[in-house]
Computed example of a mutant assay.
Amino acid sequence: MPVTGVDYRDATAFAAWYSHKTGYPWRLPTADEAAAAAGERFAGDAFSAAAENPANPAVAWLRRYKEESAAKRPADPAVKARGFYGANANGIDDFGGNVWEWTSTCYARTTLAPDGSVESRTDNCGVRVLEGLHRAYMSSFVRDGKSGGCAVGTPPEHLGFRLVRDDTPLAHVKLAAARLWDRAAGF
C-alpha cells in the first residue's frame, strides 16, 4: 500500500533517512520530472490551458475546473494497493490514481505582461506542487488533502509520495558529507 497522510516535511525527512539507510541519494521528484514520468496520465496545470484564450485566462481556468470537478471518476476514499490503477506507457504504476504525490517544486505566482512574456515571478515554498489526477497546490504542512489547499478541481483524496534516486555527482557528495557529519556528531 502506498504511504498516505504525510506532509511535505514527512516526505523529505523519509527521503533523507532512506538515503542514509541505503547509501544512495533519494529525493522527491520535481514537478517536471513527475509530469514526464506520468506520461499520458499527466493532466497538467489548470492554468496551462490559458493559451486557448490568452486575453482571458479565467475562461480556460473555469473550463478546466468544470472538467475536473465533473465525475470523470467518482471519489474513492479507500487507498488502493500498488498496481491497482495499472502502468502507464512508461511502465510506472498508479500515476493519476487516488494518491496525489508531493514534489520538490514550489508554487510560483507568475504575472504576465500584455505580450505574454513573464513580467514577474514569486516562488512560495510554503506551498508545494502535487501530481495526481490533476496538478494541485498544497501547503507543505497539510497531511489530509480534503482539508483544503487545492487551488482547483477535485480535492486530493490522499497525500503521499514516491522518490527518485539522484545519481548526480553533487547528490553523492552531499550524501557523503551528511554521513560524515552524522559520524562526527556521534549518530
Rank of each mutant, 00 (worst) to 15 (best):
G86Q: 08
G86V: 05
G86W: 04
A87T: 07
N88V: 10
A89S: 14
A89H: 02
N90H: 15
I92Y: 13
I92D: 07
D93A: 12
D93E: 09
D93G: 00
D93M: 03
G97L: 06
G97E: 03
N98T: 04
N98A: 00
N98M: 04
N98Q: 08
V99H: 02
W100E: 00
E101K: 01
E101Y: 04
W102K: 01
W102C: 04
T103F: 01
S104I: 04
S104K: 09
T105R: 02
C106Q: 00
C106F: 00
C106N: 02
C106W: 00
Y107T: 00
A108E: 13
A108D: 04
A108I: 06
A108T: 12
R109F: 11
T110G: 00
T110D: 00
T111V: 11
A113Q: 09
P114A: 14
D115K: 08
D115W: 09
G116A: 06
S117Q: 09
E119W: 02
S120D: 05
S120H: 00
R121E: 13
T122F: 09
T122V: 15
T122S: 12
D123G: 01
D123M: 08
D123V: 07
D123P: 00
D123Y: 09
D123N: 13
N124F: 09
C125M: 05
C125Y: 03
G126N: 15
G126L: 07
G126P: 00
G126S: 11
V127M: 11
V127C: 04
V127Y: 09
R128S: 02
R128C: 00
R128N: 05
V129I: 15
L130W: 01
L130R: 01
E131Q: 11
E131M: 05
E131T: 14
G132R: 07
L133P: 00
R135W: 11
A136K: 04
A136P: 03
A136F: 01
Y137M: 08
Y137I: 04
Y137P: 04
M138T: 02
M138N: 03
S139Y: 15
S140R: 10
S140W: 03
V142H: 03
V142N: 05
V142Y: 03
R143V: 14
R143C: 11
D144F: 14
D144Q: 15
D144N: 15
D144H: 14
D144A: 14
D144W: 13
K146L: 14
S147P: 07
G148N: 10
G148L: 07
G149K: 06
G149R: 05
G149W: 06
C150D: 15
C150E: 13
A151I: 10
A151V: 11
V152R: 10
V152N: 06
G153Q: 11
G153F: 07
G153P: 12
G153L: 10
T154L: 15
T154M: 13
T154Y: 12
P156H: 03
P156D: 06
P156W: 05
E157H: 05
E157N: 08
L159P: 07
L159H: 05
L159D: 08
L159W: 08
L159R: 05
G160M: 11
F161L: 10
F161G: 12
R162F: 14
R162N: 13
R162C: 13
R162W: 13
L163P: 10
V164S: 09
R165F: 10
R165C: 15
D166V: 06
D166L: 07
D167I: 07
D167N: 14
D167H: 03
T168S: 15
P169C: 11
L170M: 12
L170C: 06
L170K: 15
A171S: 14
A171D: 06
